[in-house]
Amino acid sequence: MSLLSCQNVSFSYEGKDVLSKINFSINQGDYLCMIGENGAGKSTLIKGILNLKKPSSGRILTGEGVKQNEIGYLPQQTQIQKDFPASVYEVVLSGRLNSCGIRPFYNKKDKQDALDKMDKLGILFLKDKCYRELSGGQQQRVLLARALCATKRMILLDEPITGLDPIMSMELYELVKELNQKENITVIMVSHDVRGAIDYASHILHLGKTQLFFGKREDYKNSELGKHFLTGGIEA
């Protein structure tokens, strides 16, 4: 039984199919990179995997006892209000909520973990700053730290490097790689930075209203589609 498998899954908005016939499965420790043009349905599939959106047909199965509260998530866009008063620390700490179980408050370990993750992403000095007063890239790092806090077995990152500077982007890739290799955490990442992202992935899922390719990274690089998409990326 694999960690996550989609069986003939389709998604629709208001009755119109935006994504259909998705069939793939991944195992614990895999690193899946999801690629495709704008509007291909990547974010929709991520939401489906997270149970935020119901598939219009087909089934998404999680195996090996992965529970919803073991998953970290970095949304592509958050509808956090502009005027929300919350400190960076409060936001990052809220990622630890899924480790609390029925415990009402955060304990020492939760707080320490939040601080560690902030340190890793270089935002420790922003700890007491107000989230709404940060720059876009800084906000992205805060949400990343929160996602890392929530991650136990699987992390889903929807365009994580949006707004990050080149150095931070590289650090992010390394960080995720470390998470994947050292802690055997399953990674699903959506990225438009194809050349950068693909090097780290073990599997590729190429979407375009339907499943265009799923398989090992090497196979993708050698496929017609892969060659086209990758070189297209270079020329563009």
Partner: peptide
């Protein structure tokens, strides 16, 4: 703060 994230991570 973020209902979607809360829901996605099992709250």
């Amino acid at each position: 703060f973020d209902e979607t994230f809360a829901k996605a991570t099992g709250t």
